[in-house]
Structure formats: C-alpha cells, structure tokens
Amino acid sequence: MAFSNYKSISTVIKNFQIKYVQSNFILEVSFPVEQSFKDELDLLFTDGVIDNSEDAICENLIYPVLKLFAAVNYIFQQCELKRQKQ
C-alpha cells in the first residue's frame, strides 16, 4: 500500500497494530559556536543565492555545518592517529 493511502497516523496504527509513543528523544546540548561560523552563515544569507529555490536554501544552510563537522572529524582522526602511534 502506498504511503499516500494513509491520511493520518491513527490509520497507520490501526492497520499495522503498532503502539505510537510521542516523546522528546533529542536532548538539547549547548555548545559554543565560533564567530567565524556565524560570519560564514551571515555571508551566505547576504551574498548567497537563497531566494532561488528550496534546494539553494538547504545547500546554503547545510554546507557550513558539514564543513564544520568535517574539520572537527579531521582533527579527531589526527589526534587518534597520534594516540595510536604512542
């Protein structure tokens, strides 16, 4: 049966006889955000092409986050390599 055939969560619950529990499963964690990251986002919103399409908006929001996590991951890997050599 196609997803579009289900009009509500209750219909899915009845058809598949499942238990539905709604809960906040993502815990909020505060962490410092560097000013350079904030500046990059500001630059993307002022000079970037965010009004053209939903894809452009998503790309402009996701790219700086992925770039930050890639840098953190690289640093972590380098530290792990150094630790393994010791």
Rank of each mutant, 00 (worst) to 15 (best):
M1W: 02
M1L: 05
M1T: 04
A2W: 09
A2L: 08
A2H: 02
F3V: 10
F3W: 07
F3T: 06
S4M: 03
S4L: 01
N5V: 01
Y6T: 05
S8E: 04
I9M: 11
I9K: 02
I9P: 03
I9E: 05
S10P: 01
S10H: 07
S10W: 04
V12I: 15
V12G: 02
V12T: 09
I13V: 14
K14N: 09
K14F: 04
N15D: 15
N15V: 10
N15G: 03
F16Y: 14
F16I: 05
Q17S: 13
I18T: 11
I18A: 12
K19S: 12
K19Q: 14
Y20P: 05
Y20D: 06
Y20Q: 06
Q22L: 11
S23T: 12
F25V: 13
F25P: 09
F25H: 15
I26T: 11
I26W: 11
I26F: 13
L27E: 13
E28Y: 10
E28W: 08
V29W: 05
V29N: 13
V29P: 00
S30K: 13
F31H: 13
F31V: 12
F31S: 15
F31E: 08
P32L: 10
V33K: 08
V33H: 06
E34S: 15
Q35M: 10
Q35Y: 09
S36I: 09
S36Y: 08
F37K: 03
K38G: 04
D39R: 11
L41W: 08
D42T: 12
D42V: 14
L43F: 15
L43D: 15
L44K: 12
L44T: 12
L44E: 15
F45N: 13
F45K: 09
T46P: 03
T46V: 12
D47A: 14
D47W: 07
D47L: 11
G48T: 13
G48A: 11
V49E: 09
I50W: 07
D51S: 13
N52I: 05
N52S: 15
N52A: 15
S53K: 05
E54T: 14
E54P: 03
D55H: 12
D55N: 14
D55E: 08
A56Q: 11
I57Q: 07
I57F: 14
C58P: 01
C58S: 11
C58E: 10
E59P: 00
N60I: 07
N60D: 08
L61M: 14
L61G: 06
I62N: 08
I62P: 06
I62D: 06
I62Y: 12
Y63W: 06
Y63G: 04
P64K: 07
P64D: 06
V65C: 07
V65A: 09
V65N: 07
K67D: 09
L68W: 08
L68P: 00
F69D: 13
F69H: 15
A70W: 04
A70F: 05
A70L: 02
V72A: 10
V72G: 02
N73K: 05
Y74N: 08
Y74V: 02
I75H: 03
I75Y: 01
I75R: 02
I75L: 03
I75D: 01
I75Q: 04
F76R: 06
F76T: 05
F76N: 04
F76G: 01
C79E: 01
C79H: 01
C79L: 01
L81V: 00
K82H: 00
R83V: 00
R83Q: 01
R83K: 06
R83F: 00
Q84G: 01
Q84E: 01
Q84M: 03
K85D: 00
Q86P: 01
